[in-house]
Design a protein around this nucleic acid. Sequence first.
DNA 1: AATTTAACACACTGGAAACGTTTTTTGTGT
DNA 2: ACACAAAAAACGTTTCCAGTGTGTTAAATT
Lengths: 218, 218
Amino acid sequence: MDEETDLLNQKFEPMLEQIKVLFFEFGIKNLNMDDISHKLGISKKTLYRFVKSKEDLIARIFEYEQKRWVEVVRSISAQEVNAIEKLFKVSLMVYEEMKRFNPIILFELRKYYEPLFLEYQEKKMAHVALSMRLNLDNGTKEGLYRSDLNADAIIAIYMNYLVEIHNSDYCKGADLSFDELFKIMFEQHIRAISTAAGVAYFEARKNEITELLNKSRN
Amino acid sequence: MDEETDLLNQKFEPMLEQIKVLFFEFGIKNLNMDDISHKLGISKKTLYRFVKSKEDLIARIFEYEQKRWVEVVRSISAQEVNAIEKLFKVSLMVYEEMKRFNPIILFELRKYYEPLFLEYQEKKMAHVALSMRLNLDNGTKEGLYRSDLNADAIIAIYMNYLVEIHNSDYCKGADLSFDELFKIMFEQHIRAISTAAGVAYFEARKNEITELLNKSRN
DNA sequence: AATTTAACACACTGGAAACGTTTTTTGTGT
DNA sequence: ACACAAAAAACGTTTCCAGTGTGTTAAATT
């Protein structure tokens, strides 16, 4: 019974990716279950063999996203680079992710699937926080970050950075692009938590890192 | 009777602007007439004094957009700069406009309000074409554009540039940002239609123009 | 070849939500 | 106290859509 379900789930995973893309393109409410099954080239009946409701479908997508995200962070953590590099890579991905997030989708999630959405956000935040804590530890061990840091506070502040970057009117006063703002925030963070060695490393790498950001923009 | 209607329309115009913003933020289908009246701080009844249906409301927004757009082009045309500068300014605005256009809104317009949308697009295209023709004439008179141009063909090609810039996969092969692509296309166009004097002018101004584009990005 | 399984297309239903209208309430100016 | 306009609420109608059920076809299994 359970193995059967697992097999179904495995088969269904690539479809989840497709459906996610569809949602981003057309919106959630604009796609009914008929539309979705059509776009996938399967019958609605079959679709309902994988999910038990549309809400369940959304939940599955969140679950899938969470898994995918954990995998990404894990793979970056495994790379043979120091803490600053890792933090930058992950931060950049978070930032790119948020950029893609359309306000309409956000609205729909909050209005029609609030409990699911909150749960997802909470899990994601927890995961980011955990990853950041590991990063702080590593950075400290590597002598890049200061050893007298209040980890909880720093994590909270940095996560707030990443979230608030979009909603806020930071860019209004000074006319900054989001990318500019991101660079400044990252630099702010690194300088705030780093030892002299860390700052020196950052300054040496700064230009190349900035270039990475320009590349990622399209 | 007619004067009365005109008064109503005048009062309603700022609301159209607000509603447009709401649509961009929340989507069209996600906002019912109750929501809209609430957000405007008026009653649904009052809203229905201005429009006779939701479809009518969309039509009014298109109408309003068209008017606004004509006004923008008119004001740029009135400026005391040469044809190349004017073309750049208008092109930049078209480009910015398209960038803001969310794929979900596009989908909704096509699916639920196709006739209205097509009519709007047609009018807009006609207007852009007309403006470009004037620009070509002016540029030729100013000695910046060549005098042996096939206006119709050039207009068609350039308009296609602006439209296709987003849908297409131009950026896939070379990894170009949209802004980069826009710059290249504009330069391509100017060089293609200009006299030696025109090209010289463009080359002299090129850097400043590029800077403008960077400024506009946020 | 017969049977089972699985997927597809399509029709149907019940309930929820939206539209557009009408009625009631609220508030303001005279 | 009255008249009036706009807001709020209520209402009937219609549309939409999630979810289910039916019949058919095609492939796999026996």
